[in-house]
């Protein structure tokens, strides 16, 4: 049996905003089926790292590889040719935002079929059939004709996950998918993500839900001031972190949750 191949990888990634150096040389890679949780204090650069992968932020240096495509932008911008590679890379990724970012002027079903129809140019019947199945999977089949504004935060986030899945992505990136939710709605979203992990989906998840991270991750990465301070299996990282900073971060976190 061959090893799973690399779904995405990041090498030597640097990113500054003005004089604020947010990412200071990040290397990370995910093989197919990996679930990697990114943890770290607020401001440590987790969102920036995640956003650099689909080039929502353009790195200053480093290489991002998604499947067969890779980009090494220079000078914080993409050339015209790189822009089209970036679009192809985005097509192979799903991105789930903290604030859902559904399109308010489209119904639930329209949100899910938008990219399949208008980016991937798939036939409508097929796209709608697949979208319906995805909505069923996230437990929202009966909301297919509702407007996003009429859904709860948890429901909106589940639609956003279905929308990401509809692109048939190689990997899905989650940026704190439950941080904008009322506490009682967190569970329903985590349950959906957990099911995706069980299916063997490749995912990168920025999260503050330590219990969840421990349970679903194949690898946990602790980010500190733009560098990977520690990475390992959940058992290593949560059970016996070698970095003092990681230990302090985790104990602070578990104290706060208690």
């Amino acid at each position: 049996m061959s090893l799973p191949s690399t779904a995405l990888s990041i090498a030597g990634l640097h990113k500054s905003f003005g004089s604020n150096e947010v990412l200071r040389g990040i290397d990370l890679s995910a093989r197919d089926g990996d679930v990697i949780s990114l943890i770290g204090a607020s401001g440590s650069g987790k969102s920036t790292l995640l956003r650099c992968i689909p080039m929502l932020e353009i790195p200053d240096a480093g290489t991002v590889t998604v499947g067969e495509d890779n980009l090494s932008p220079e000078g914080g911008r993409l050339t015209r040719g790189q822009e089209s590679v970036a679009r192809r890379m985005r097509g192979h990724l799903g991105f789930v935002f903290q604030n859902f970012n559904l399109w308010p002027h489209r119904t639930v079903l329209q949100n899910v079929v938008e990219a399949p129809l208008f980016v991937q140019k798939r036939p409508r019947a097929e796209a709608e059939e697949e979208a319906t199945a995805l909505l069923e999977k996230v437990g929202l089949a009966e909301k297919r004709d509702a407007w996003p504004a009429h859904l709860s935060g948890g429901q909106q986030q589940r639609v956003a996950i279905a929308r990401a899945l509809a692109q048939r992505p190689r990997a899905i990136l989650f940026d704190e998918p439950t941080s904008a939710l009322d506490p009682e709605l967190v569970g329903e979203v985590l349950k959906v993500i957990r099911a995706l992990a069980d299916e063997g989906r490749t995912m990168l998840i920025v999260t503050h839900e330590m219990g969840f991270a421990r349970e679903v991750s194949s690898q946990v990465v602790f980010l500190h001031q733009g560098l990977i301070e520690e990475a390992g299996t959940p058992e290593q990282l949560f059970g016996n972190p070698s970095s003092e900073r990681c230990r302090a971060f985790l104990s602070g976190h578990f104290d706060r949750n208690r």
Partner: peptide, 21 residues
């Protein structure tokens, strides 16, 4: 909303498609 535009870009839309859709 900035997020709606980002969601469009990240799904692989061209700038023109984002504008139009």
């Amino acid at each position: 909303p900035k997020g709606a535009v980002e969601a469009g870009r990240v799904s692989g839309m061209t700038r023109f498609t984002v504008l139009r859709r």
